[in-house]
Design a protein around this nucleic acid. Sequence first.
DNA 1: TAGATTGTTAATCGATTAACAATC
DNA 2: TAGATTGTTAATCGATTAACAATC
Lengths: 213, 213
Amino acid sequence: MTSTEKNISPAVIKRLPRYYRYLGALKQRNITRISSKELSERMKVTASQIRQDLNNFGGFGQQGYGYNVENLYTEIGKILGLDKSNEMIIVGSGNLGQALANYRDFNESFGYKVVAMFDVNPKLIGITVNGVEVRDIDDLEDFIKHNDIKIAALTLPQDQAPKIAKSMVNWGIKGFWNFAPVDLTLPESVTVENVHLAESLMTLTYNIRSREE
Amino acid sequence: MTSTEKNISPAVIKRLPRYYRYLGALKQRNITRISSKELSERMKVTASQIRQDLNNFGGFGQQGYGYNVENLYTEIGKILGLDKSNEMIIVGSGNLGQALANYRDFNESFGYKVVAMFDVNPKLIGITVNGVEVRDIDDLEDFIKHNDIKIAALTLPQDQAPKIAKSMVNWGIKGFWNFAPVDLTLPESVTVENVHLAESLMTLTYNIRSREE
DNA sequence: TAGATTGTTAATCGATTAACAATC
DNA sequence: TAGATTGTTAATCGATTAACAATC
């Protein structure tokens, strides 16, 4: 992953998983090739955007032919880091944490693997969720270091999230999938992907209202 | 809500809930006024952007003074549709649906209220989650119509989501909070807010990789 | 009043779309 | 070869930032 790569805009990155999803669906239907034009019609974006986006990463297509579905699927998977297994932990084992542990849609499907869960609550410590044990949060440091964990889902209450996240960075975590309704301020070298559920629900109600007239 | 309003860009709308969150925090700390400059430092955006964003909706500030926190909080709440109670249903009562029903962060906090849950699974029908009964999905049409429900969280498997969503539009649903990993194609009058969890996790792994060098 | 800070216009920057030569 | 479709450059569009007159 030596970075000869130019910096790719976040807007492009955010679209990649959607391309990946569509290509996966095409693959499953045994469609072997697709042009940017046809894909653009299915996805309701411009063909130009598809070609521009993909060309950030290299010429995956062929003039006069289009793109090979299988190949493009694999290549985008590589770009997204799905070519290797991604071990992750879930910190905060309440309802949301447990739902994530059970969620088939990324677990199993794309090489993500939840290897441990953590909580402070003695009632939760020791239970097993989808085959994964909930451990005492006091064991978090050891576990991250010994197992070289890089990815953590944060499903903790808002007030606990920033402090524990800071520690986790020191222990080796490189990316947070943050569900706590708070902005984590962390070193540049660390990535945070926020899933702010309440905020997305608010934009929904805004949009409903604005269409009522 | 008569639409004298010019069309506001989605980028602006997406930022409103974050302003709202910061203002809520300021309010709780009994801070009564704030300038765009100071808010911009806390939020790590430009003061210019804050002023531009807010001015889409009217002059909430005062020259030489800044913004009244309480007032601005209330006004943004109104814009987002939080001034009235928002009743919603959850369609799909598996792990994720149940986690949402239990999730304090929007439930209770901002006037959203889950009034019913639905599922096809006989094992789930009849149970109660956080005081909300899981009903047979056959009762969905009646429930939506009789209770004038406008908002639905879709936490169904991907293959069931598009069909049921289409029916729900006919029954009166105006906005979907869609957790199924699929794009819903629905009439213009209907709003869809997607929470594509697997896709956000993929952008996380991309970003982790791209910082490794 | 003087200082501060907004609301708003103008300038810049970046992202999207269009166009087309290259080429399979 | 002729037709199709990419890769890529140029044009357009929109969003962000800078600047400053208005005004509290």
